[in-house]
Amino acid sequence: MFTVKIEEVIEHNERYSTIIFDRSFRAYPGQFIMLHVFGLEEIPLSLSSENSVTVKAVGETTRYLVKIKPGTRVGVKGPLGNPFSPTSGKALIIAAGIGAAPLAFLQKFLEKYAEEISTIYAARSYDDLIFLESFGECRVATEDGSYGEQGTVFDLVYSEDLEEYDRIYACGPEIVLRGLYNYFKELGIEKRVEMSLERYMKCGIGVCGSCVIGNGMRVCVEGPVFNCADIVW
Score class of each variant (00 low, 15 high):
100 A>W: 02
92 L>N: 01
110 L>M: 08
116 E>F: 10
84 F>I: 14
93 I>D: 02
99 G>C: 11
62 T>P: 08
70 P>K: 09
115 E>S: 12
92 L>Q: 09
97 G>S: 11
71 G>P: 00
98 I>F: 13
70 P>H: 11
101 A>E: 12
82 N>C: 11
60 E>Y: 05
87 T>G: 06
115 E>Q: 11
123 A>G: 08
69 K>E: 15
87 T>E: 07
96 A>P: 00
94 I>T: 02
71 G>C: 13
89 G>N: 14
89 G>Y: 06
72 T>C: 08
62 T>I: 11
122 A>G: 13
71 G>M: 00
100 A>H: 04
111 E>M: 15
107 Q>N: 14
112 K>P: 12
122 A>Y: 07
102 P>G: 06
64 Y>A: 13
92 L>I: 04
99 G>F: 10
61 T>D: 10
85 S>E: 15
120 I>T: 09
109 F>M: 00
65 L>P: 08
65 L>E: 07
103 L>A: 02
81 G>A: 11
67 K>V: 01
71 G>S: 08
100 A>K: 10
98 I>D: 12
107 Q>C: 03
116 E>W: 06
121 Y>M: 11
111 E>N: 15
101 A>L: 01
100 A>D: 01
87 T>N: 10
72 T>A: 15
120 I>E: 06
85 S>K: 13
107 Q>P: 04
74 V>T: 00
60 E>A: 02
68 I>R: 01
105 F>L: 15
110 L>D: 06
77 K>F: 09
123 A>R: 03
78 G>K: 00
74 V>E: 05
84 F>N: 13
86 P>K: 07
99 G>I: 05
99 G>M: 15
83 P>E: 07
82 N>R: 14
97 G>Y: 04
92 L>T: 04
109 F>C: 07
118 S>G: 03
108 K>Y: 03
89 G>A: 15
85 S>V: 13
121 Y>D: 04
103 L>C: 02
66 V>Y: 03
62 T>S: 14
93 I>S: 04
115 E>T: 10
80 L>R: 10
78 G>F: 01
67 K>I: 04
80 L>K: 12
76 V>Y: 06
